[in-house]
Every structure is written in structure tokens, then in C-alpha cells.
Amino acid sequence: MTKIDFSSFKHQINLTQYAAYLGYEIDRKKSTRNSIAMRKGSKDKIIISKRSGNWIYFSVYDDQDSGTIVDFIKNRTSKSLFEISQELQVWISGNIALPEPTKYVGHVEERQPDPRRIQRLFNYCTPACGHEYLKNRGITAEALKSPRFSGRVFQDRFNNAVFPHFKEKQVCALELKGKNIDLFVGGSEKTLWRSNTRKGDDTLIISETPIDALSYQILHALRSAFYTSTCGGFSPLQSDIIRKLVTDLSWVNKVILITDNDDGGDAITGRLNNIVTSTNYTGSLTRHSPNVRGLDWNDVLRNRLGI
């Protein structure tokens, strides 16, 4: 039997183009020049990028769903590797009706972590103590200055809210939030956003976004809970970081998942449940989402404040 060489498929076939052919749509607000977010309905969201010249992806909702275009097809169909190779050969030969150029991204730059650039940009940031965008989301100056969140939320020279991520105590990623911006700065290596921990803490709360974490604390005024956020859908690397965090924090006896009350929140909750239960953690694990379908905790806060 002739051995199939999949290497050419993995770097020649634009995965955003192939996904668009299958009906996936670009989420431009969540995409950057290095990372393309695409959705198919409300139950499947993928992040596409390039590594070592190959197109790769991971599912926001399923830790087992990641890899190259071959894995992408295998995880969504019952096709054999031989059948997959036949289909991809058609793409290589150009004998297929391609989607319109507006429906995919022709060029994606390979992501290269640039810690020096991130540190340089972070040096220009100042603590966000009365930020207008955050104020409009119900996040008060008092909350930002509190011992739980002081030094964890910043603003840049363009007045965007900045949520830093750290790796080995060094800043490694900057997430920007503003009226017209929602992205990670180029050169970022995404880990997790975290609040401060305090003596006596016994509860870890995991949110989808830092703003949800801040909102939840304002609403519930918990005294012994600290927060971490995945900042949207999370990669396999972030799964490992969450797993290590839960494993290392032996003094935590409660984990609460404050995910959104929607399909995406349901899927992320499932992933987080799997991660936490795969560790030696023996405490309680619960989900606390808003009561109304479609809401997140910032929606609840703004509704309560009439914003």
C-alpha cells in the first residue's frame, strides 16, 4: 500500500478557507493577524493559527479537538485517513469551488511570543483606578483599588483597559478591552489572568473573562475567594496551566465555575469540569451561572445598576 504523505496538505491548504467551505464564519472581533476565531452555530468555535509553516487549530470547547487539517476533518466526520487524503488532494489540485475571499483569511502570521515587547508596552501602563470603559460596565474604582484586584488591572496610553498575564512572575501577555477593541497585543503568550490571593482564601473562582470576575465580586462581596480567568476560549496549554494551578493549591477546598449561561458557557464548563476532576483535588466543584439564559455576570451587574 502506498504511504500517504500528509505534510503538503498541512501547510498548503489554508485551514480558514477549508473551514469557511464547511460553513464556519469568522469572528472578526476575536481574531488577530496571528489567530483567527471561527464559529459554526453556537456549539463549535475554533481558533486557527500557524506553527512551523503548518495550519493548526484547537476547539474552544473540547480539549481533545485540536491539531492540523487532518485532525480537523477526522474529528468532524467518519472518514478514513485514505478518504481524507483523497478529499485534500482535490483541494491541492484546485478542482473545487472555493468560498468567497471575504469568508476566510488569506494570510495568517505565525505567532511568535515577544516577551521583551510585552514588557516594554506594559512599562507604559498605569493602574486603572477610574477607567471610563470599565465604569460603563459597572466596574467601580473602589473594586479596582481593593486588595483583591489592586495591581491587576491597568490602562495603556490609548486609555484601553489592560489585563496582564504572567509566566514565571514575568508579564507575558496583555489583553486589551475598550469600546472598540477586544484583543491580545501582538507578541503575547496567553496564560491566565489572576486576581490577588490573600491569607485565609479557600475558594478558587474561574471565569471566562476578567470583567466577569470583577462583576461577580462586586455582586457577591466574597471574603475568601480569589479569581482566575481564561480570557475567552482556552488552548490546550491553558488547560495544563489550570490543571497545575488546581493541583498546586492544596489549601483550596472550593472551586466555583462562573461561566456564562449559554451554549459556550455550557461547553467551557464541561472542559473545566474535566480538567479539575483529572487532578488530585478532593474539594467541592460547582457551577454558578446567571439564572437567565444568555446572560453573563457583567450583564447581571449592569442590569442591577440600570446601565
Rank of each mutant, 00 (worst) to 15 (best):
P147W: 08
P101D: 06
C129G: 07
K177H: 08
V105H: 08
Q112M: 12
I139F: 00
R116I: 13
K190M: 01
Q119W: 08
K135Q: 14
A143E: 09
V185F: 04
Q170S: 10
D156K: 06
H165P: 07
H165L: 10
N95D: 11
S150Q: 09
K169L: 05
I181F: 15
N95S: 02
S93H: 13
Y104T: 15
R120L: 02
R117D: 09
H131G: 04
P101W: 06
N180K: 13
R152M: 11
V185Q: 06
I92D: 06
P113N: 11
L174Q: 01
F166H: 03
S188V: 07
G130Y: 14
L121D: 01
G151D: 00
P127Q: 00
E142L: 07
N136M: 14
K169D: 15
G187V: 03
Y133F: 15
V185K: 01
L98S: 13
Q112A: 11
K103M: 05
V108P: 10
F163L: 03
V105N: 02
E168S: 15
Q170C: 09
N123P: 00
L134N: 00
A97L: 12
F149Y: 10
L176F: 11
T102K: 10
Q112N: 12
A173C: 14
K190V: 01
R120P: 02
I181E: 13
E175T: 05
A128T: 05
E100S: 15
F166Q: 03
L183Y: 11
L183K: 13
I96Q: 02
L174A: 03
R137P: 07
P101H: 07
G94D: 12
L121K: 08
L134A: 01
T102C: 11
P101F: 08
K135S: 12
N95W: 04
C129P: 05
I181M: 12
Y124A: 15
K169E: 15
F184V: 12
F149T: 13
P164H: 05
T140Q: 07
G130N: 14
R148G: 07
F184T: 03
Y133Q: 11
F166S: 12
Q112W: 11
N159H: 11
A173M: 10
V153F: 02
P164L: 13
K167A: 13
I92K: 03
F122M: 14
C172I: 04
I118F: 08
D182E: 04
R157G: 12
F184G: 06
G151W: 00
A143W: 05
Q119N: 09
K177Q: 08
D182L: 04
T102H: 09
N136Y: 10
G94S: 12
D182K: 14
I92M: 11
D182T: 04
V185C: 05
V105Q: 02
H165F: 02
C172V: 01
E132H: 09
Q112D: 14
G151F: 03
